[in-house]
């Protein structure tokens, strides 16, 4: 699907969130100068084509008590990584799971899985589950806990959406 100027305008107008008014898509439509029906049609189309993954009320996990965020990193055989990654990505406590390059010798890890929990004890259990799932395919792992958020901004596509 190729995005046109109106699609981009819709993305720009909705990326910071829909307004909390009775007819939010009408409010967006009015800003752009099209009908609400057109906004809904185009957003449906973008969702069908995977440009929009989902439309959601997005909880702030940190504020809800999920204070422990651990980036687990694993050194697994490249040959099996897609198969293993697909399994890990399905776990309910994993919020992101990616294959990224190693940087040897200082960084041997190629599979990244983010886990979240309310207690330190719980996060240890989650890591054990991952360890067991990866078994002997994992040649080593580490967990990087985040201690401080130094910057966090929402998605801002304004500067490159026209590309």
């Amino acid at each position: 699907m190729k995005l046109d100027a109106v699609d981009r305008e819709i993305i720009q107008q909705t990326q910071a969130g829909l307004p909390l008014v009775s007819k939010p898509y009408h409010a967006i439509a009015e800003k752009i100068g099209i009908t609400a029906q057109e906004v809904i049609r185009r957003m449906t189309c973008m969702q069908e084509h995977g440009i929009i993954r989902r439309i959601a009320a997005i909880p702030n996990h940190y504020r809800l008590g999920y204070r422990f965020n651990g980036m687990t990193v694993w050194d697994v055989d490249d040959q099996y990584i897609d198969e293993l990654g697909a399994k890990v990505g399905q776990l309910t406590f994993v919020s992101h799971c990616y294959h990224r390059p190693r940087h040897l010798p200082e960084w041997p890890y190629n599979l990244f899985a983010m886990v979240h929990s309310k207690t330190e004890q719980e996060i240890k259990i989650q890591i054990d589950v991952l360890s067991e799932m990866l078994g002997s395919y994992s040649r080593g792992h580490d967990v990087l806990y985040s201690t401080r958020i130094l910057k966090k901004t929402g998605l801002r596509i304004k500067n490159y959406v026209s590309a």
Binding site: Q15, L18, I51, I52, R54, I55, I58, R63, L64, G154
Partner: peptide
């Protein structure tokens, strides 16, 4: 109360940039 960060579309990584 900041329990919701926003209500709106979620874009997959690298879909827009």
């Amino acid at each position: 109360l900041d329990f919701i960060s926003r209500i709106g579309p979620v874009f997959p990584p690298n879909s827009l940039g």
